[in-house]
Every structure is written in C-alpha cells, then in structure tokens.
Design a protein around this nucleic acid. Structure first.
Lengths: 128, 128
DNA sequence: CGGGATCCTTCAGGATACTG
DNA sequence: CAGTATCCTGAAGGATCCCG
C-alpha cells in the first residue's frame, strides 16, 4: 500500500529546498542578483541592514553552491562583480514567484501580523 | 528620481514573507495541512524527525497567526484536529508552488548540493 | 573598495520527563 | 493521545578591527 503523499521525508525535495531559504539573506541576495550583475557595494545598498560579514559570507555560500559567479577586476580601487549562473537562474524562478506573491498579497501579511500581535498582547495580559 | 526596484527594504513584503519560512517546520506543517484536516499524531507521522515540542510549538504559532484552526473533541482518548483557515489557504498557495518546483527540479538540488560538497572537500584539503 | 578574522550574544530547536 | 515545562547546546548572525 502506497504511503500518503503528504508525508515529507527527511530528504525529500521539499525539505532540501529549505537550504536556500534557511539563511537569513541567501534568497534575498539571489533575488537582487536576478536584476543583473552587481558589485559588492550595490548589493550592500540593496539590502539595508545587512552586515559586511553576512554579505560576504552568503556570497561565498552561493558561489560555492555554483549559483553565483564572482568576477574580480584587477583595478584600483578593487572591483568585484557578482552574477547569477545558469543554475542560479533556475533557483531564482521559484523565489521570484514567492516574492511576487508577497508583493501582491501584502494584505494577507498584514492580517497575519495583526493576528500574531493580538495574540501576543492577550498572552502578556495574562501575566499581569 | 525613483529608486531601483531591486532594493529590499526592511519591511518590504519580500522580507516579511520570510516569517513563515524562517521556522524550520512552519511551512511544512502548513503544506501537510493543505491535504486536509489532520490530527496531531498524523501530523507527527507526516513529518519524520519533528519533536513533540516543535510540533506543538509550531502549531501554536500558526494558530496564533490565524492560519490554522484548532478543534478539540472532548472524548477519551483526547482528539484534536487541525485545519487551514481561509487565510492559511492563501499562504499555502505560494508554498505549494515552491514545493512543486522542488519536486520537479530535484536535479538542480542535487547539483547545488554536489557543488557545496565539493567546495567543502576542497577547503578541508587545504587544512591538511 | 572588498574582504578576512575574532569575539560575543542570542535563541531556535532538540532531549527528556511529567500531566490529564 | 495531546500538551506543558525545563534544561542545554549549536550555530546563526551581528559588531569590530585589520588588511591589500
């Protein structure tokens, strides 16, 4: 008898895709790069709040994963440009879909956050 | 002059959607529930490796967010059933799309993981 | 300008044991 | 069967300083 197909086994694709969603910045870096090759500084400015450390760290990761290509120009001042590889482009597809949904459904996000806020208030009111 | 639209500001929808992606189990719980109402034990079995603690914790969160409805049946042994609310159903849409992509692109996931493995090996070879 | 190295804090999340 | 309460650890990620 076949197992129900809603079971999410340890190494199923649905779990594995979370790799790029886990890091706080990974998917956003990919998304930004989908607009075209970009220099480090541009990326930094495109992601307000990111620290230098996290930026380079995530860039190394996606580079190691073969999702992003890093090109160094030996000039002064130094110039480095990042761009999506073909593999990276494939991964951006579902991310863009997700982000497009988010943009189109900001109201749903509001509702979710309102609910959470209310339940948090209710919980703290108990403690008094 | 308008700013480039690849900038991901602190409270843009693209960042806010990460709320449901951040938790290790949140999106998977929602995905499983998209197959229909389910009891705690069923959910537990649908997500091999999840601990009781994380299961209930995640369920409380999505319940507080208004994404999931919790129904208690006062019988012995106790029976509790979880189901998606209309809001929850909206959030499952993009998740399902993401998961469908993952299932259809397992090869890309393999490639990504191979790349990461190789670069990790190369790095450790340096250290010897 | 781009990036490596360190230190430090936080907290998600797992293990375990107990209750009704 | 469903849920709560502790305890504890790893690892993510931020701040900071230094280098070519």
């Amino acid at each position: 008898m076949a197992e129900p197909d809603f079971i999410l086994r340890e190494n199923c694709p649905q779990r594995r895709i979370h790799y790029i969603l886990n890091g706080k910045w990974t998917s956003m870096v990919l998304s930004v790069l989908s607009y075209g090759p970009m220099r480090t500084g541009q990326l930094e400015r495109a992601l307000p709040g990111i620290s230098k450390k996290m930026l380079t760290q995530t860039l190394r990761e996606v580079e190691n994963g073969g999702l992003v290509h890093r090109e160094v120009f030996h000039v002064v001042p130094p110039k480095v440009e990042y761009s999506l590889t073909p593999l990276g482009i494939r991964f951006v597809e579902p991310l863009s879909a997700l982000y497009d949904w988010a943009k189109d459904n900001a109201a749903a996000l509001d509702e979710l956050e309102d609910n959470l806020r209310r339940s948090a208030e209710a919980a703290s009111k108990q403690g008094e």
